[in-house]
């Protein structure tokens, strides 16, 4: 197995609100290996974006604060780096693209200028070298007529083109890790397909690790090597992609897979997970999914299940798979066969 590039160890990122403390990221541990695409999947508010922002150290304080844990990047703890070192790392080794490409681009500068900026800044290129590199980058992200694009402004481009430009900016310094936060959510499906193709292409060409944040299990299935499922600030399941889709263990993961209508697989009625995501303020010691879970046991309401490996590389945080939980309940046998 490839070397680990990033390792989150017991990361805790909290937000102070008037109603109380929100543990947006609550004791999260997982790693991203070199050359791997890792997808973090979950619903809005599950902490997937905050995890990525914590890695970039872009959490706004107040109200947010990383209160515990370590984020190891190539053996260094990012949380201990100085502001200056971190900012150098952000440009060179870790790059990020966002959901809304329009708001990430400055409307008053040309595209060429914006891609060239980190080149001049971080790599110390001359203007001429930078321009050549920018043209090369624009070509690489699959935009025809790069010279024309070089001199255009963001509003002249479509959403898909802007996302390509964001990818070009992200790739400009050959990062080791590319974080993509819902990169295709704002795009139409046919454009989404183009961007996903492009990202796969880049990964195979440049061997960049990708941390992709998404709510769409379809995107996960297409892109991921390894999947982390989050719910209410916690990792509840992680596994290699084939394993996760073949053998989902956590009732939430199972529910998500069943709840999504799939083309050409028409069902009479969709499976739906009842209820909603819990109020994130002051969540106590429990499985946060217990009130929506059809297998909820007494122990689920009072004790947080540990994230433990139950098969090779497949970890789950659920009492159904723990000895402690089994002694609590008799009918565990029905778990695997819950198809509606």
């Amino acid at each position: 197995m490839a070397k680990e590039l990033v390792e989150f160890r017991n990361l805790e990122t909290h937000f102070k609100t008037s109603a109380g403390t929100v543990k947006a990221v609550n004791d999260v541990s997982f790693s991203i290996r070199e050359g791997e695409t890792l997808c973090v999947v979950g619903e809005s508010g599950c902490g997937k974006s905050v995890t990525a922002m914590s890695l970039m150290q872009l959490i706004e304080s107040p109200p947010g604060k990383i209160v515990g844990g370590e984020i190891m990047f190539e053996g260094k703890d990012l949380l201990k780096l100085s502001k200056k070192d971190m900012s150098r790392l952000r440009g060179n080794d870790i790059a990020m693209i966002f959901q809304e490409p329009m708001s990430s681009l400055n409307p008053v500068f040309t595209i060429g200028k914006q891609i060239a900026e980190p080149l001049l800044h971080h790599l110390g290129m001359t203007h001429k070298e930078a321009k050549a590199r920018v043209i090369e980058l624009i070509t690489m992200v699959g935009i025809p007529r790069p010279e024309k694009i070089y001199d255009s402004y963001p509003h002249e481009l479509s959403g898909g083109m802007r996302q390509r430009i964001m990818i070009a900016i992200a790739l400009s310094c050959n990062p080791k890790l590319l974080i993509a936060d819902e990169p295709t959510t704002a795009l139409d499906v046919t454009i989404q397909a183009q961007i996903l193709d492009l990202m796969r292409d880049i990964k195979s060409k440049l061997n960049t690790s990708i941390m992709m944040i998404t709510h769409d299990l379809g995107v996960v299935a297409e892109m991921a090597d390894f999947v982390v499922v989050m719910y209410a600030g916690k990792v509840i399941e992680e596994a290699p992609v084939l394993e996760l889709f073949k053998n989902p263990q956590h009732p939430y993961t199972q529910g998500l897979l069943k709840a999504k209508p799939i083309i050409n697989q028409r069902k009479e009625r969709l499976y739906s997970i009842p209820g909603q995501v819990p109020n994130p303020v002051n969540l106590g010691d429990s499985c946060h999914f217990h009130d929506r879970c059809e297998f909820c046991m007494e122990i689920c309401k009072v004790k947080t299940p540990p994230l433990r490996a139950h098969a090779d590389g497949h970890k789950t945080a659920c009492w159904l798979y723990e000895e402690e939980g089994k002694s609590n309940e008799r009918n565990v046998g029905s778990v695997g066969t819950t198809a509606e």
Partner: peptide, 13 residues
């Protein structure tokens, strides 16, 4: 094209 562009949650497909 529209149909084939939708990502399907099945990595084996």
């Amino acid at each position: 094209a529209l149909m084939s562009a939708i990502p399907v949650p099945d990595p084996t497909l």
